[in-house]
Simulated scan of single mutants.
Amino acid sequence: MSTPIIRPIEKKDNQEIAEVIRTVLIEHGVPKVGTAYADKALDCMYETYDKERAIYMVVEEDGRLIGGAGIAQLDNYDGNVCELQKMYYLAEARGRGIGSQMMQQCLEKAKKFGFEKCYLETMPYMKAAQKLYERVGFSYIDGPMGDTGHFSCPVHMLKDL
Score class of each variant (00 low, 15 high):
residue 2 S to V: 06
residue 2 S to A: 11
residue 6 I to D: 02
residue 7 R to C: 05
residue 9 I to H: 09
residue 13 D to Q: 07
residue 13 D to F: 03
residue 15 Q to P: 01
residue 15 Q to M: 05
residue 16 E to W: 08
residue 16 E to Y: 08
residue 17 I to A: 09
residue 17 I to D: 08
residue 18 A to H: 06
residue 18 A to K: 08
residue 18 A to L: 03
residue 20 V to L: 09
residue 22 R to V: 05
residue 22 R to W: 06
residue 23 T to I: 03
residue 25 L to W: 09
residue 26 I to N: 11
residue 27 E to T: 08
residue 27 E to Q: 14
residue 31 P to T: 10
residue 31 P to Y: 08
residue 32 K to R: 12
residue 34 G to F: 09
residue 34 G to K: 02
residue 35 T to D: 06
residue 35 T to I: 03
residue 36 A to T: 12
residue 37 Y to K: 03
residue 38 A to S: 15
residue 38 A to E: 15
residue 39 D to E: 14
residue 39 D to Y: 04
residue 41 A to V: 01
residue 41 A to M: 10
residue 42 L to N: 12
residue 42 L to M: 06
residue 43 D to V: 02
residue 46 Y to M: 01
residue 46 Y to T: 01
residue 49 Y to R: 05
residue 49 Y to H: 06
residue 51 K to F: 00
residue 51 K to T: 10
residue 52 E to N: 10
residue 53 R to N: 14
residue 54 A to C: 04
residue 55 I to W: 07
residue 58 V to Y: 09
residue 59 V to T: 11
residue 60 E to C: 04
residue 61 E to T: 13
residue 62 D to H: 08
residue 65 L to H: 12
residue 69 A to T: 13
residue 70 G to S: 06
residue 71 I to P: 03
residue 75 D to L: 12
residue 78 D to Q: 12
residue 78 D to E: 15
residue 79 G to I: 00
residue 79 G to L: 08
residue 79 G to H: 12
residue 80 N to R: 06
residue 83 E to C: 03
residue 87 M to A: 13
residue 91 A to V: 13
residue 91 A to E: 15
residue 92 E to M: 08
residue 92 E to H: 02
residue 99 G to A: 14
residue 100 S to R: 15
residue 100 S to L: 14
residue 100 S to M: 14
residue 100 S to T: 15
residue 101 Q to R: 15
residue 101 Q to P: 00
residue 101 Q to C: 11
residue 101 Q to T: 07
residue 101 Q to I: 11
residue 104 Q to N: 13
residue 105 Q to A: 12
residue 106 C to R: 03
residue 109 K to W: 10
residue 110 A to F: 06
residue 112 K to Q: 15
residue 112 K to G: 04
residue 113 F to P: 02
residue 115 F to I: 00
residue 116 E to F: 02
residue 117 K to I: 00
residue 118 C to W: 01
residue 129 A to S: 14
residue 132 L to Y: 07
residue 135 R to F: 11
residue 135 R to S: 15
residue 136 V to M: 03
residue 138 F to S: 01
residue 139 S to N: 12
residue 139 S to R: 14
residue 140 Y to W: 07
residue 142 D to H: 04
residue 145 M to A: 01
residue 145 M to P: 00
residue 145 M to L: 15
residue 147 D to W: 09
residue 148 T to M: 02
residue 148 T to A: 02
residue 151 F to P: 01
residue 153 C to I: 00
residue 154 P to R: 01
residue 154 P to I: 01
residue 155 V to T: 07
residue 156 H to R: 02
residue 160 D to M: 07
residue 160 D to R: 10
residue 161 L to R: 04
